[in-house]
Design a binder for these strands. Structure first.
Lengths: 119, 119
DNA sequence: CTGTATCCATGGAGATACTG
DNA sequence: CAGTATCTCCATGGATACAG
C-alpha cells in the first residue's frame, strides 16, 4: 500500500493519517478471497481443516493452507494440533479474530439487504 | 466467486446460504485496493476527481477511473457532471454507499486498535 | 487427515500517451 | 480537468502431485 495522504485537506481529514491507516491495515489482513468466510465459519466453534475445506466448496488445498497460515500469522486464528493418527488440527478465533466478527456480520447484513437475491 | 456452501452442517449454518452469500456480495463490491478509502473519503462531502486522486496519493488515472466506474455501477456513488470549462465532476455517496460507512468505520477502529502503530 | 511443492492462469494495478 | 486506450507486470489463487 503506497502513500495514502497528502496535505492540504480540510479538518475532517486531519486525523486522516491514522484513520486511513486503520482502514488499510484491516483491509490488508482480510485480503484474500476466502478470509471473511473462514472467519465467519469459525465464529460458531472451532473447526477442523477438512470441515473448513468442505464448507468453502471450491477451494484447493494449497490455497486453503496459505490463507490459514496468513490468518494465523496475523494473529486472527489459533491452530491447535492434536498428536493423533490420523492427524487432527483445529482452528479457532483469537480475541483479535473475534473483534473482526462485528464487521463481518455487518457485511452479511448489508449483502442480504442490498445484494441481488440468490434463492 | 465459486460455490460457497455444501450440506451437512450444524444448525447454526443452515441459514448459511443466504448469510454467506451476503458476505460474498459485500466483499465483491468492495474488492479493489482503493474502494474502502474512496468511500471513506466521500463520507464527509462530495469530492472532485482530482481531490480523490490527490488524496489517494499513488493511484494512477487509469486505476482511479476504473474504481470509480465500478463503484458507480454497483450503485455506491453518484457521478455529477457540471457542464463547465474546464470540466468539473463531483462524486458523492448514494444511500447504498452510505450504508457501507458503518462497516468502514468499524474497520478503521479495528485497525487503530490492533494495527501496528504508524506514528 | 493435513499438509507441502511446483507450475500455471488470471486479473488487478501502474505507466504512458492521447483527447474533449 | 477529467477522462480513455494500451500495454506490461506481478501477486494471488487454482490444479496437481507428493508426503508425514
Amino acid at each position: 500500500m503506497s502513500r495514502i495522504c497528502k496535505d492540504g485537506f480540510d479538518e475532517e481529514c486531519i486525523k486522516e493519517q491514522r484513520e486511513v491507516y486503520g482502514i488499510a491495515y484491516t483491509q490488508n489482513i482480510l485480503s484474500g478471497r476466502w478470509k471473511y468466510l473462514i472467519l465467519w465459519f469459525l465464529k460458531f466453534k472451532e473447526r477442523r481443516y477438512n470441515e473448513i475445506k468442505t464448507f468453502l466448496g471450491g477451494i484447493s488445498q494449497g490455497s486453503l493452507t496459505k490463507q490459514l497460515r496468513e490468518l494465523e500469522t496475523d494473529g486472527l486464528i489459533n491452530r491447535k494440533i492434536y498428536p493423533e493418527v490420523p492427524p487432527r488440527v483445529e482452528y479457532s478465533l483469537t480475541s483479535k479474530g473475534e473483534a473482526l466478527i462485528p464487521i463481518i456480520d455487518l457485511m452479511e447484513e448489508f449483502g442480504k439487504r442490498f445484494g441481488d437475491k440468490v434463492d
